[in-house]
Computed example of a mutant assay.
Amino acid sequence: MLKNLQSTTTLYNGVEMPWIGLGVFKVQDGEEVVSSVKAALEVGYRSIDTAAIYGNEDGVGRAIAESNVPREELFITTKVWNAHHGFDSTLAAFDESMEKLGLDYLDLYLIHWPLPSKGQYVETWKALEKLYKDGRVRAIGVSNFKIHHLESIMANCEIKPMVNQVEYHPRFNQKELHDFCRKNEIQLEAWSPLMQGGLLNESALVEIANKYNKSTAQIIIRWDLQTGVVTIPKSTKPHRIAENVDIFDFELSQEDMDKINALNQDKRMFADPDEFNKI
């Protein structure tokens, strides 16, 4: 399952999704994102995760176009932003993202947040269903959705999400949500797996890292994969981009997995999806 950087998990619709991708949140459009994506592709990454609100889809598209990697080997994700919830506006937002990315089809399209104040995520999801049925995207999913948001989609729509991308790290392992997603064949994906660097000096993780002669970042990313969670660590530094995925030559023991699990505090570092209403 976890042999190398090209190892994949199979979504319930049969699409293969890489276990590791490069996240480009807060990576500046232009040379910074272009060089970051190119560095990742050269190392062997095949999954790139962006979003309309990141403002760097143009740069991601340029890096893809300038790389020598065949399109069919890539797995590209982007997301519809809160301002574009609703059926027609979601379809228009998708077209705009595709133009910026310069792609004929997308691998994964996500609703970025449920945006409860607007109450349109079910309608937005139906737009994603249309894009999926029309063959414009290979898989559809959500981001930052809690169990009750997922249940609402499953009760009112034809297709259930294939992926749920959420805040997930050793301090916030979302066990109940993870169990729900596993039971319903929804692949959980971690954003901010390193808690924006906030866990890199955690003593328990440093101790485990020393044991395996790895960095704490590598330990956390390996923990993600061994818990069955897709992960998209972000970096703009080529040596870090490479280091983050040098994790296929060891396996964490159950004892060490338990120690990492024990770090959970059920505390979000970022916004609660029930309260986040930024447009």
Results as ranks from 00 to 15, higher is better:
106 L>E: 10
180 F>Y: 15
26 K>Q: 15
184 N>A: 02
141 G>V: 14
178 H>G: 01
56 N>P: 03
20 I>M: 14
160 K>D: 11
7 S>A: 11
20 I>Y: 05
48 I>L: 03
237 K>V: 14
53 I>V: 14
244 N>D: 04
88 D>V: 12
97 S>D: 11
173 N>G: 12
23 G>M: 03
260 I>V: 15
151 E>D: 11
197 G>C: 04
65 A>N: 02
74 L>C: 02
176 E>W: 05
268 R>V: 13
76 I>A: 01
271 A>D: 13
176 E>H: 10
96 E>M: 09
131 L>S: 00
73 E>S: 11
132 Y>N: 01
60 V>K: 00
256 D>K: 01
242 A>P: 13
50 T>Q: 02
55 G>Q: 01
175 K>P: 15
248 F>D: 01
141 G>F: 14
118 K>N: 09
227 T>H: 14
240 R>E: 10
256 D>S: 06
244 N>G: 07
11 L>F: 10
215 S>Y: 09
171 R>H: 14
144 N>F: 10
133 K>L: 08
236 T>V: 15
266 D>M: 11
155 A>E: 15
108 L>F: 03
245 V>G: 05
39 A>R: 05
63 A>E: 04
158 E>A: 12
188 L>R: 11
137 V>H: 09
38 K>E: 15
218 Q>W: 09
72 E>R: 09
13 N>P: 14
242 A>N: 06
35 S>P: 04
253 S>L: 11
182 R>H: 15
232 I>A: 00
206 V>M: 10
69 V>M: 06
100 K>S: 06
53 I>T: 07
81 W>I: 13
216 T>L: 01
138 R>D: 10
168 Y>R: 09
140 I>A: 05
217 A>K: 04
215 S>F: 08
34 V>H: 09
115 L>T: 10
218 Q>N: 10
233 P>C: 01
157 C>I: 09
106 L>T: 08
140 I>E: 10
41 L>S: 03
191 W>M: 04
156 N>T: 10
173 N>P: 12
83 A>P: 05
119 G>C: 07
45 Y>C: 03
204 A>S: 13
256 D>W: 07
154 M>A: 03
